[in-house]
Design a protein around this nucleic acid. Structure first.
Length: 424
RNA sequence: GGAGAGAUGGCUGAGUGGCCGAAAGCGAUCGCCUGCUAAGCGAUUGUACGCCCCUAAAAGGUGUACCGCGGGUUCAAAUCCCGCUCUCUCCGCCA
């Protein structure tokens, strides 16, 4: 959510930024609602002030046992007028609020204007793309052959886009989760948290999934609870409606969670394999920082995600999302894309974003400056560290052997009781 | 799921219709005092939204709202009524 005062004073600038994002927004409506709101507010507050004063006088008169009936009658009218104005004000404020909640964040100045993912600048690449003496297979073939991924039975149990892992497949997923958590807590300074996997409407609104993207979520029937699409939601909302001390910042949290996405509108995309599932595992990093440090923190956060791939020995590249690709709440996003030999392409495995104060304003997450005592919004950041299912894909495809087996990256072996290879 | 109790500022806690944005204590900040520390004394100590002032911001002035959340009664609600949420205790069920 953008600051209403800021919006009021910089409407042209914001409008231009939104155009670059391919968003057309009805700012005339905003201006009109904003003016109406302030007009009514002034009127109703004046009346309230009058009522407060006269009511006090009525109290005095009553104490002296004097007659106050004419004042009471007069205030009765004022009160009904106040009630009427309050009702009108509520409608306008609801409208205004609904409007502001659907305006995306303003992108950082370093974000390039583009028309699609082909315009995302590549920031860096790492590792050597492996060459194979045979035609590399896609991960679903490798996984099914090794009997560690079972798509048919996942579909039987639940439906399309749910997968059953078996044996070393299940163990590999679990090993990756532990490896990632251990690295981020042990070497990158994060504190591990384990959160609820359902969140309420307020939390979903706080991080920006609601009200605009309800169709992407699974909702619990009969309740205002939603399955989380990412741990970003519960973790960022840890401090919703709180004021933190400046010296506590930055806060680094890392969380494992399953993620649930309806993937509405993605029919026909990535229909095979683990790439796009309704349920997948992810380790998520979240930071709460001061405004002046958040872009440095974004660089470090992205490096923390990349470090996982380095240790696993998986080649990757990092791109900076252009305006067309940038998410609703984000001011700047780096996507880390792992090399997938079976698909002969880089595929997103982590997305690291700085939201500036966009989420913090929605969720009311603030901090108090030590120096001045002033209260300001924090900046929030998050990034996958990493998407676990997609990391399994990268391992299967990059470490596949001519005989169909898969070598386990060395750093994972301690998590798999020393096992070096997945075989038949 | 059933029965009961509760929710007040950073914390503890008073407050059953007007004198309450809210006592008192603790904590914190600043000042004084003091070989150091501690104690003591004094002052300050919430958030949001308007308006005025101002080139703008800040500061300042002023008004309104906020005592879990949402409604209602009343000239007037932390206080009375209704609904909801959450917490605690007991019972039941349960990994």
């Amino acid at each position: 959510m953008l600051d209403i005062k800021y919006l009021r004073q910089n409407i042209e600038f914001v409008s231009e930024k939104m155009n670059q994002r391919g968003q057309s927004i009805d700012f005339d409506r905003f201006t009109s609602l904003d003016i109406q709101r302030r007009d009514i507010l002034m009127e109703v507050e004046t009346l309230r002030s009058e009522r407060n004063n006269v009511s006090k006088a009525i109290g005095e008169l009553k104490k002296k046992k004097a007659d106050a009936s004419s004042l009471i009658a007069q205030m009765s009218d004022v009160s009904s007028k106040i009630k009427e104005l309050d009702d009108r004000l509520r409608v306008i404020e609801d409208d205004l609020n609904a409007f502001v909640l659907t305006v995306p964040n303003i992108q950082h100045e370093s974000v390039v204007a583009g028309r699609g993912s082909e315009d995302n600048p590549v920031v860096r690449t790492w590792g050597e793309i492996p060459s194979f003496s045979f035609a590399p297979k896609e991960h679903w073939e490798i996984g099914e052959n090794l009997n560690i991924l079972d798509f048919a039975r996942g579909a039987k149990i639940t439906g399309a886009r749910f997968t059953l892992y078996r044996g070393l497949g299940a163990a590999l997923e679990r090993a990756l989760i532990n490896f990632m958590l251990d690295l981020h807590t042990g070497e990158h300074g994060y504190t591990e948290v384990l959160t609820p996997f359902m969140a309420n409407r307020e939390s979903m609104t706080g991080t920006g999934q609601l009200p605009k993207f309800a169709e992407d979520l699974f909702k619990i029937e009969g309740m205002e609870y939603y399955l989380i699409p990412t741990a970003e939601v519960p973790v960022t909302n840890i401090f919703r409606d709180e004021i933190l001390e400046e010296k506590k910042l930055p806060v680094y949290y890392v969380a494992y969670s399953p993620c649930f996405r309806s993937e509405a509108g993605s029919y026909g995309k990535d229909t095979r394999g683990l790439i796009r599932q309704h349920q997948f595992n992810k380790v998520e990093m979240v930071k709460f920082t001061t405004p002046e440090t958040s872009y440095d923190e974004l660089e470090r956060l992205t490096a923390n995600a990349e470090e996982i791939l380095k240790r696993l020995g998986i080649p990757y590249r990092t791109v900076s999302l252009c305006t067309a690709d940038l998410g609703f709440s984000s001011a700047k996003t780096y996507d880390v894309e792992a090399w997938m030999p079976g698909q002969n392409a880089y595929r997103e495995i982590s997305s690291c974003s700085n939201f500036d104060d966009f989420q913090a304003r929605r969720a009311s997450i603030r901090f108090r400056r030590e120096e001045s005592g002033k209260v300001e919004f924090v900046h929030t950041l998050n990034g996958s560290g990493l998407a676990v299912g997609r990391t399994v894909v990268a391992i299967l495809e990059n470490y596949q052997q001519a005989d169909g087996s898969v070598v386990i990256p060395e750093v994972l072996r301690p998590y798999l009781r020393g096992k070096e290879r997945i075989t038949f």
